[in-house]
Design a binder for these strands. Sequence first.
DNA 1: ACACTTTTTGTCCAGACTGGAAGAATTACA
DNA 2: TGTAATTCTTCCAGTCTGGACAAAAAGTGT
Lengths: 225, 225
Amino acid sequence: MSEETTLAQPQPVRKQQQRSIVTQQKLLDAAIEAFSENGFKGTSTRDIAARAGVHHPLITYHFKNKDQLWRAAADHIFSAFTRSLSKSLEENRNMDAKKRMSAMIYAYVNYAKSQPALHKVMVQEASCPSPRLEWLIDTHLKPFFEASFSLLGELQDLGIAPAGNPALLFNMIRLSSGGLLALGNELKESSNIDIEDPRTLDEIAAMIIRVFLPGEMPAAAAKAS
Amino acid sequence: MSEETTLAQPQPVRKQQQRSIVTQQKLLDAAIEAFSENGFKGTSTRDIAARAGVHHPLITYHFKNKDQLWRAAADHIFSAFTRSLSKSLEENRNMDAKKRMSAMIYAYVNYAKSQPALHKVMVQEASCPSPRLEWLIDTHLKPFFEASFSLLGELQDLGIAPAGNPALLFNMIRLSSGGLLALGNELKESSNIDIEDPRTLDEIAAMIIRVFLPGEMPAAAAKAS
DNA sequence: ACACTTTTTGTCCAGACTGGAAGAATTACA
DNA sequence: TGTAATTCTTCCAGTCTGGACAAAAAGTGT
């Protein structure tokens, strides 16, 4: 379920051809782009096919229908996202809680920049309850969120993060990074913030840490949390 | 340009009829709802008309076309929004800077709850540069944003708000309130946050103030900023 | 080289879409 | 009350939608 290739066909007798993998990848990339620009309803399968440089009936062939294509595309970016964040947590396993959280914030900001669709898709789907939204939350968001809540709780106990509902706090962090970067063009015009400038990304991450994790780690707890 | 009624016709010889005003209002409300759910491309004029309980050619009659209807609808909520925030600033003109900013945050959170379209529309339009986006920024966002930047700068000088680019800081505040509330359904599922509960709104506003305005006003500067 | 499978292409469909035309109904005002 | 402007309704044309299908092409494995 969580991997691409061999999505539509039940059990291929022969191995999947290279060109088929390429087509699927092109369709997924195009789908992410299109869906994040125009939402699910606002995107036509023909538009996706055109962006991918491919004939539109190939969508039916590879992904069965528009809904399945959406799921595959969302799965694609969200698993890459959680993979990237898990990796960051993994690499900093031995660091103290503040360093771990900071590293995660940097990872979040960078991934959100490279894939703003991540947040746009959420906003578009969050409008009204839909099977797509539910699937997305259960499959990708919940596990990662719950881990973050507890890490934040830890930081609150240490007096590093401000008090209050950690879930709320986490979502504010999430919006200050992912939500901010999703606004892209608007920020340039309205606030003279250029997210294309790599220094801006560091500035954003640094500010999030300054704002949401203002405390310092006590020397005693600096090694193990 | 900034007011509804008499949008399509050049100069009506007779005054506008009551039923016409009602129809326009119903169409505007329906349009806001529909556009915020499905984006510009994803919304059909027929859908809007159906939500408004009105025949679809009335859109042509009252607003000329889909694009003009979008502009009228956006104008509607954004001018109500800036009006609401200006009122808050006005009422607290004599208070100190922190109180003024706090009041604005409360106003922002409350308006974003009652009109989540405000933020959804921005995210949907921010995807790619569009004449609609530019118009929205120039007409409604920029004036209000610039006032906020300078108020925030003031708070930074007083050591109340964290240091850094005030424009960035302001946008984080904006996303932590408006962006958060736009996620509505998702938060309930993913983070067990119920934005329908009025206490949640207070909790959000209080947390934003705690996080973004952690300093206290110096006694000397408490009266005049 | 061959038969057989996977992948792509071209074409078609029924329904929904936008924008607009034209006439009927309603209302304002003298 | 009569009539002319305003508002609403009914229809149509041309385009786009998601999806279906057969036939062609390309690749696989023996």
